[in-house]
Design a protein around this nucleic acid. Structure first.
Lengths: 100, 100
DNA sequence: TTAACAGATGCAAATATATGAATATTTAGC
DNA sequence: GCTAAATATTCATATATTTGCATCTGTTAA
């Protein structure tokens, strides 16, 4: 049985873990490249951002695990894309707040 | 002299650090209590959330340091409040995404 | 000035996160 | 089958974050 406080604290944990997934400069950069429904492979992202392949894969795994991204395998490639395009607005909203 | 990439990477760092400030269950709970322009003291928050005074003060310090909150001292009390009320929308947006 | 309250800060221990080298897995083509 | 390409995973190290106790600072009122 789950009481009100547990449910509420679960929701907080879930929101925090999703936000935490996004709250990293590399991962924000990834989101920006995926805005507008774009789909990119691990290699494309790793080359676009100039970071190691394994580091890229780790970051993508975190974003997927926390429900920010989805992925689809097509042959040798795995395409990653935004689960909710709304999420990229969070970053834009933030940048409006940080740039004043 | 600053080149384009440095500026861009600075913006990413700034957005990430603001998001990181928010991305914690206790700090999201604090934001929710401050929605709509409310101002609360450290003691009020510490009692509302049932967490230690010093822990509360640390969390508030992080939120203030990263530009999420402002504070005003009035006598013995320090009132904390949202710098941009827009920021509380981020959490709502997130919760819409996490609850489907 | 002292007492009492409100808040901030220093510190340490526990825990979590980030990164990349090395290795494993998956898939396509031969 | 074998090889190469793309991605994922394991592991270790470095670094950052969280928490709370103890303490310090600032403020009010007697």
């Amino acid at each position: 049985m789950m009481n009100i406080q547990e449910i509420d604290s679960d929701k907080l944990e879930m929101a925090a873990s999703m936000l935490k997934a996004i709250a990293h400069p590399v991962r924000i950069a990834i989101l920006k490249h995926l805005e507008g429904g774009k789909k990119l492979t691990v290699t494309e992202i790793h080359e676009l951002l100039g970071i190691e392949q394994s580091t890229t894969s780790h970051h993508l795994g975190i974003l997927k695990d926390k429900g920010v991204l989805c992925s689809r395998r097509e042959g040798k490639n795995t395409y990653y894309y935004l689960k909710h395009d709304i999420l990229s607005q969070i970053v834009d909203c933030l940048q409006r707040c940080t740039c004043e």
